[in-house]
């Protein structure tokens, strides 16, 4: 097995990890809010919770597309765009 020339940036996705930690914190706050807040405030928190759970993977794939495009990894960027397209078809269908 031969590895590509080691890149000092390979495997480091610190920004994505931090972004996911922030999204996780928002999901925790929204879900606790939906659980304990009464009335309209609880409904709003529940809506935010669902939006975060639906949006997080799409954001992650979008982030991967721009990262892979920036690094010239066009094949996998195209695959990620195709996946987003399939998911849109799935939701619409």
């Amino acid at each position: 097995m031969t590895a590509p020339v080691p890149s000092p940036l390979a495997g480091r996705q610190r920004r994505l990890v931090v972004a996911l930690q922030v999204v996780f914190a928002v999901a925790v706050a929204a879900s606790i809010g939906a659980l304990v807040l009464p009335g309209r405030a609880g409904d709003v928190a529940g809506g935010v919770m669902v939006a975060v759970l639906v949006g997080a993977p799409a954001l992650r794939i979008g982030w991967l597309v721009q990262r892979w495009l920036r690094r010239g990894d066009r094949r996998f960027a195209a695959a990620a765009i195709a996946l987003l397209g399939v998911l849109v078809v799935a939701v619409v269908t």
Partner: peptide
């Protein structure tokens, strides 16, 4: 799951209060 949740949400089948307990 995100794609499925989007569909369920658009169909009004998501109980956010019970869902919040599961999500926490």
């Amino acid at each position: 799951a995100a794609a499925g949740l989007a569909v369920f949400s658009s169909q009004g089948r998501v109980d956010t209060h019970a869902g919040a307990a599961v999500v926490v």
